[in-house]
């Protein structure tokens, strides 16, 4: 493995729920090398998604630092984080989160609206991304006309269209049947191995985690490492 793409040092995340103080992550240290395919497992409420949110600049730690690609996210303003996310990170959600009013093609083009590409260039790049996930023939279809697996493929195409170094996947196969889930996981493997994407995937599913190069377990806000399958 090469140098670190992401590094978390002494990261804590505390939420205040009424008078109750809930510590979701406790002084957590983590290094993610460039090109890694990391699976994060753990029970519900263990802090997996919070960890993913911190890596993606969607949330800020209450203690410690989060550095990704040389940028220290914890000290950035909201607008700086927005700009950083648009170029450095792609997100894949459990329920796809495609915009129902847009076609697959237009959904994939969404992140490119934040660039200076012309309409033609945006369309070309979205077509390439759809081709990578094997959905060129579904470009004009709206999400409701696609199967769950196809929707997730479109979501992956949207995540990679702006060519980010880091892909963050939150339960990407949680809403899919076994066969479709395996297709998605193989696609993620290809993106990792052939396209050099660093992938961090949160999952409940041990079989899904087997597709990763290594697996970390989070429990009660702390990390424990186990050997990769």
């Amino acid at each position: 493995m090469s140098e670190a793409l992401a590094r978390l040092k002494g990261v804590s995340r505390v939420y205040q729920k009424g008078k109750e103080r809930v510590e979701v992550l406790h002084e957590l240290d983590l290094m993610i090398p460039n090109g890694d395919f990391l699976a994060i497992m753990g029970p519900s409420g263990s802090g997996k998604t919070t960890l993913l949110n911190l890596l993606g600049g969607l949330d800020k730690p209450t203690g410690g630092t989060v550095t990704v690609g040389g940028a220290e996210l914890s000290s950035m303003s909201n607008n700086q984080l927005s700009k950083w996310r648009s170029t450095h990170v792609g997100f894949v959600f459990q329920f796809y989160n495609l915009l129902p009013v847009l076609t697959a093609q237009k959904n994939v083009e969404l992140p490119l609206l934040l660039t200076n590409f012309s309409g033609k260039e945006r369309a070309e790049r979205a077509a390439i991304a759809l081709d990578i996930v094997g959905l060129s023939d579904r470009a004009k279809h709206r999400p409701r006309e696609l199967s769950g697996g196809e929707e997730q493929r479109v979501a992956i195409a949207r995540a990679v269209v702006s060519d980010p170094t880091l892909l963050l996947c939150d339960e990407p196969t949680g809403d899919l049947d076994r066969e479709t889930a395996e297709e998605i996981l193989k696609l993620l493997q290809i993106l990792n191995r052939e396209h050099g994407k660093t992938i961090v995937m949160v999952t409940h599913d041990p079989q899904a985690a087997e597709y990763a190069s290594r697996t970390l377990h989070v429990d009660k806000g702390k990390l424990e490492s186990r050997a990769a399958a």
Partner: peptide, 10 residues
Amino acid sequence: VLKTLGFKDG
């Protein structure tokens, strides 16, 4: 999701 993708608040 738009904000996640990088759309600014404004």
